[in-house]
Every structure is written in C-alpha cells, then in structure tokens.
C-alpha cells in the first residue's frame, strides 16, 4: 500500500500560548480488514494502518492503536495544547512496515 497513500492534516497556523487547538487528520488507505473474501472465496489478507501518533516538539499528544474496524481512509480529530511555537509531527504505521509522516508548523504568540 506504499503507493497512493496521502496524508492530510489541519492545524491552525497560529495560537496563543497554552491555548487548546483542534487537529484533524485524514489519510488515504483501504484498511483491508482481513474479513473479506475475494471472488474465489479466499480471505483477502489484512492490510491496515495499525498505529497513528501526533507529537509536538518531540512530546506526545496522542498515540492511537487502530484495529480493522477503523473505516477506509482513517480520520482522527483531537485536541492539543501548544506551549510554544514549533512543529507537529504526524506518523502513520502500516502493517506492511511502511511509515507515512507529515509535519505542520504553528506559531505561538
């Protein structure tokens, strides 16, 4: 699933120190559950993103374990506090060993 995987994240560009901000993330992934069968009746092997993490300047915001019950194109919304200006790093871990990541800067006034 290394091809066609594209993360999207929404983080405000600026915030006040200590302010709570809302973050949304979405990534394209088929999240094959391992429950489906192909036309010949064989189980299609599980192939999902199994972990998602969000960190800010190296400190963790949220660490999610995903099971096959998470929908295709996984979506997460959560809140974070930002003590200072810096960078969010978002990382998705695929069953096949691939890791997808993206970063967003935020300026704290």
């Amino acid at each position: 699933m290394a091809s066609g995987v594209k993360p999207r994240v929404k983080v405000p560009k600026t915030a006040a120190a200590g302010e709570t901000i809302t973050i949304k993330t979405l990534i394209s992934h088929k999240m094959e559950s391992g429950q489906r069968k192909d036309d010949d009746g064989n189980i299609i092997p599980r192939s999902i993103i199994n972990r998602f993490t969000a960190d800010f300047n190296g400190e963790n915001v949220i660490d999610v374990t995903l099971e096959p019950a998470i929908s295709t194109n996984p979506y997460f919304q959560f809140d974070a506090v930002v003590p200072e200006s810096g960078e969010f790093k978002f990382t998705w871990y695929d069953d096949d060993g691939d890791v997808y990541d993206t970063s967003k800067e935020i300026t704290v006034s």
């Binding site: 066609g4 594209k6 999207r8 929404k10 949304k24 979405l26 990534i27 394209s28 194109n73 979506y75």
Partner: peptide, 12 residues
C-alpha cells in the same frame, strides 16, 4: 472540506 473524505482524492 477537511471532513469530506473525497478531498484526499482531489489532492491526489
């Protein structure tokens, strides 16, 4: 538009 999952395909 962020919640709309179609937008990842628009990005692609």
């Amino acid at each position: 538009d962020f919640d709309n999952p179609a937008m990842i395909f628009v990005d692609q």
